[in-house]
């Protein structure tokens, strides 16, 4: 197992939005169709180490499909996806599991296990990924992760007892407990009230700064985009239509870009 470092020694935070040095996630010419519905068509995007990239698109434009392809939940029809230097399509089950331990995924619907307490929810990925080498400091890791999201007191509660925002934070904590190199956020603010949504946006930033993670954020919430994005990629008609900082894109004259920022 080559997975030990993230737990023991968190990397020093890189500059928040500095020039990209190393590509940790590359999506090249990916296509994905469901029958006649061509969700992704020749989509390409690269993420550099330590940056937050927001993929912006309309509802149903295939943003969630993109992240599921990246994490290997859906196989792309064409194109290659390289995560941390590994081609996702070529990985066997075990290698994929090892990769997934380094890539966090925050689900749109949180996907907390209803039948488990918060603590058990957090321990689940920890124990599953390190089944052969169970970490000795489980309690410290759980406490640390919960405090990172500001919910240190909820360890014994069931997910059903928590509010929407709290569940989102627990879900984030469950992702963070593995100290991932990359975190994929699938619509992190959808379904939350604006105040809670801003708290989540700040949390995303905090995580980035504290642990130096790279983040791919799927969203159609412009506030979220503005607060979290180092770069923004526009997903239109299955393609990466435009890439740039929030300010750059906002100032563009292209009507298809402009309609997002109106």
């Amino acid at each position: 197992m080559s997975l030990t470092p993230p737990i023991i020694a968190p990397q020093a935070a890189p500059p928040a939005a500095g020039p990209a040095t190393e590509v940790v996630l590359a999506v090249e010419h990916v296509s994905k169709s469901f029958g006649e519905n061509h969700v992704l068509q020749d989509f390409s995007l690269a993420l550099h180490k330590g940056e937050n990239v927001v993929v912006l698109g309309k509802s149903g434009s295939g943003k969630s499909v993109l992240v599921k392809c990246i994490i290997g939940l859906l196989p792309p029809d064409a194109g290659t996806i390289t995560v941390l230097g590994l081609d996702v399509a070529t990985l066997d089950h075990e290698a994929m599991d090892r990769l997934r331990a380094r890539v966090g995924f925050l689900f749109q619907s949180n996907a907390l296990y209803d039948s488990m307490t918060v603590r058990e929810n957090l321990l689940f990925p920890l124990r599953r990924h390190w089944l052969d080498h169970p970490p000795t400091q489980e309690d410290e890791l759980v406490t640390q992760a919960l405090e990172d999201v500001g919910l240190g007191h909820t360890a014994a509660m069931m997910p059903a007892e928590l509010s929407g925002g709290m569940r989102k934070r627990i879900a984030l904590a469950r992702t963070l407990i593995l100290r991932p190199d990359i975190i994929l956020y699938d619509e992190p603010t959808t379904g939350l009230d604006p105040v809670t949504a801003r708290e989540i946006d700040h949390l995303i930033r905090e995580v980035q700064q504290k642990y130096g993670t790279t983040a791919l954020i799927i969203s159609h919430d412009m506030n979220c985009v503005r607060l979290t994005a180092d770069r923004v990629a526009l997903l239109v008609d299955g393609r990466c239509y435009a890439v740039g900082t929030y300010a750059e894109l906002q100032s563009r004259d292209d009507p298809r870009v402009h309609e997002f920022f109106a």
Partner: peptide
């Protein structure tokens, strides 16, 4: 429908 099955999959299970 709440993606818990996907969550398990990405959690190495």
């Amino acid at each position: 429908v709440t993606e818990q099955i996907d969550a398990m999959e990405v959690s190495g299970t």
